[in-house]
């Protein structure tokens, strides 16, 4: 029973990381209607920035996190401005190929700058843990912080998109860019802001991910990136609650499949579940389709 509970908590924690990454995918998809395949690699850059800040320059972990957020935010805006903005009128295939190109560019640049030798990510939470049931269930503080971060981000983004003018403008742009322009909304700026938010979240996810799985290499971001993308589709791409639900479910499925079925097959099982969900509900769990009245 305690092992089950332990797996469950680990599943939610891993799922929280997926959810935070999936939010970036889903928000960018919602507004720019593109799959930003480089999103996973921004995670990796965030993790490296935090690594160097904390391990090399001995800065406090919180400063490392903040630096990672700032640099990734800038990186997200620069990627959007240089690589995607010129392709606003291009076919979605051209944009997708560019995104894959940006992804490889970031990985190769990281390899060149930091080599492919794994870096051991510092423990951001000092290895502290909470003991329950007379010490039989040990929950690392990092796990709890990860779950808490996901909840805070989720609430924050929901409030932002529903209550603020900028957040509403984002929703307007994601529905109809032409109509949004007629309202006076600067669509290009709104897309930039969305990329900035997605990249900031990627930085946070990178730090949390590497705190849980401390081996950092230039390809660290790609598998979690693909899984988070899966989570976003699973929950219903474009939907913020969908990203949360998809991410958490994916984390739980992955941990349980690894624990009770087979570690080797856990990824295959994750994707199998995705395919089944999409067969039954093509828009994902919370994906919605409102049809226009004529």
């Amino acid at each position: 029973m305690l092992t089950f509970l332990n797996h469950f908590i680990n599943g939610i924690s891993l799922g929280s990381i997926y959810a935070i990454i999936a939010l970036g995918y889903t928000m960018v998809y919602g507004i720019a209607k593109m799959l930003n395949f480089a999103h996973g690699d921004v995670i990796m850059v965030g993790a490296y920035v935090c690594f160097f800040a904390v391990s090399t320059y001995n800065l406090p972990p919180i400063v490392g996190v903040l630096l990672a957020i700032v640099i990734c935010t800038l990186l997200g805006v620069i990627i959007e401005g240089l690589a995607y903005k010129p392709l606003r009128q291009a076919t979605s295939l051209a944009v997708l190929i560019t995104a894959i190109g940006v992804s490889y560019f970031l990985q190769n640049a990281a390899q060149l700058l930091w080599t492919s030798n794994p870096k051991i990510f510092p423990n951001m939470f000092g290895g502290a843990s909470i003991k329950l049931f007379g010490g039989e269930l040990i929950i690392p503080v990092g796990t709890l912080v990860t779950i808490a971060a996901c909840i805070v981000i989720m609430i924050g983004l929901t409030l932002f998109t529903n209550m603020t003018k900028m957040g509403k403008a984002m929703r307007a742009c994601s529905e109809d860019k032409g109509a949004a322009q007629l309202m006076g909304i600067n669509v290009n700026r709104t897309i930039s802001v969305t990329f900035a938010i997605g990249a900031a979240l990627a930085a946070i996810a990178g730090v949390l991910l590497c705190s849980a799985y401390p081996s950092l290499v230039p390809t660290t971001g790609s598998m979690p990136g693909i899984k988070a993308f899966t989570a976003a589709v699973f929950g219903g791409i474009g939907s913020i609650p969908g990203a949360l639900l998809g991410g958490i479910l994916l984390g739980i499925i992955e941990i349980f499949a690894g624990a009770y079925i087979s570690t080797q097959l856990s990824n295959a099982i994750v994707f199998l579940v995705l395919i089944l969900v999409l067969l039954i509900k093509p828009t994902g769990l919370l994906g919605k389709q409102i049809r226009e009245k004529v």
């Binding site: 003018k165 509403k168 403008a169 929703r171 307007a172 529905e175 109809d176 109509a179 949004a180 309202m183 006076g184 909304i185 919605k288 409102i290 226009e292």
Partner: peptide, 16 residues
């Protein structure tokens, strides 16, 4: 904006 409320649509109209 079909997925937004009536009032949010009006608020978007006053964006500037």
């Amino acid at each position: 904006f079909l997925q937004m409320t009536v009032e949010d649509n009006l608020i978007m109209g006053a964006y500037t």
